[in-house]
Design a protein around this nucleic acid. Structure first.
Length: 313
RNA sequence: GGCGAGUUGGCGGAGUGGUGACGCAGCGGAUUGCAAAUCCGUGUACACGAGUUCGAUUCUCGUACUCGCCU
């Protein structure tokens, strides 16, 4: 585990929004709830999968009891299959923060999607949405020629972006190609004009929860077992019968593919569960990498966190 | 007890007398718009002992273990 320093922190000294980033299964929702009760907080979601309405159990969304304890925003407000990405989330949270500012509720933004926090605290380029027609065209090119198709075009038509991005990564080259094609401007030109962030870190309390790998892995295993026990398979069956779109981002909730394969009789339950646990651990590892490198200036808290050290009584 | 086949890294699985196929897991990293996504990097493996050879994981002999058939 990396070295970290916990600066003295008392969340009670002001009323700034609180941001909590932490790996999956770290118990950050529980911490958010404790803080919400103490500070009259409204909990705002910063997780890319918990926004979808149909995933209650599998995305580990707060349950009815938790929802009743404090106001929650941006959970399950998007229909499965709808277009959604950081840009949408940033608009949603902008409106949410504006709403809350007219109340006495303190925003507590909690989640595990690093990109969302980055957009919030460091800004996101104001690039127009790429039309569906171009997205579909891009998908076709990718399927037919692979990511090198985009790389070749970028090298000629947008060399600045080409130099900056990972040209092995089709997700990157396709996006750069889409932006160039849709707007006539290069991605890096847009990035250079990124507007100031909606909520820079110095206007908030930014908490980064760090965990030991073994500690979080054990929790991941227990939590997935609990999900299955609490009806994850039924939840997947319902989606499978209506709305399942394996390629859509909303259907990439970890475990969905495996549990549906099991429901169809293609995969033993034990194998499905093992696979989902492994993928969750790998996801947690990616989160650790992101948080380590991009949240160096945040307050580092080592898990498990004793919430009472965060505020004066 | 006899005959045959086999023994490759944490797991699966190719192959060669002289640069460790590959997949999975693990570990490290990147990541400004599908991000619970996507991508990159990363391994003194060849059961043990002896022999042949300039050189053996690869050839020969023996030992151990595994599987199959037979008495």
């Amino acid at each position: 585990m990396m070295e970290f320093e916990t600066a003295p922190l008392d969340l009670a000294t002001d009323n700034k929004p609180i941001l909590i980033a932490g790996p999956t299964a770290s118990g950050k929702s529980g911490l958010a709830l404790t803080l919400a009760k103490r500070f009259n907080g409204a909990i705002v979601n910063a997780d890319a999968i918990q926004v979808y309405d149909r995933w209650h159990i599998l995305s580990a969304r707060p349950d009815a009891g938790e929802l009743a304890t404090a106001p929650h925003r941006l959970y399950g407000h998007i229909a499965l299959g709808a277009d959604y990405s950081v840009g949408h989330w940033l608009k949603d949270i902008k409106r949410t923060l504006a709403d809350l500012s007219s109340t006495d509720m303190r925003p507590i933004i909690v989640g595990g999607t690093g990109l969302y926090f980055q957009a919030l605290t460091r800004g996101l380029a104001d690039i127009p949405a790429v039309p569906d027609s171009i997205r579909h065209q891009g998908n076709r090119h990718l399927a037919e020629y692979g990511g090198s198709y985009f790389a070749k075009i970028l090298r000629e038509q947008d060399p600045i972006t080409y130099e900056k991005i990972d040209t092995n990564n089709p997700a990157r080259t396709q996006r750069a190609w889409e932006v160039l094609t849709a707007t006539g401007r290069g991605l890096s030109a847009w990035h250079a004009q990124t507007p100031p962030p909606l909520l820079p870190c110095d206007a908030a309390h930014c908490l980064n929860l760090q965990s030991d790998t073994d500690w979080i892995n054990a929790r991941i295993d227990l939590r997935f077992d609990a999900m299955v026990e609490h009806g994850a398979i039924e939840e997947c069956r319902a989606v499978m019968l209506n709305g399942w779109a394996p390629d859509h981002p909303s259907c990439q909730a970890i475990g969905a593919k495996e549990l549906i394969a099991h429901i169809r009789g293609d995969l033993d339950l034990d194998d499905a569960i093992d696979s989902a646990k492994i993928q969750t651990r790998q996801y947690a590892k990616r989160q650790r990498t992101w948080f380590r490198s991009k949240m160096k200036t945040w307050h580092q808290l080592h898990l498990p966190v004793d919430p009472t050290v965060l505020f004066s009584p």
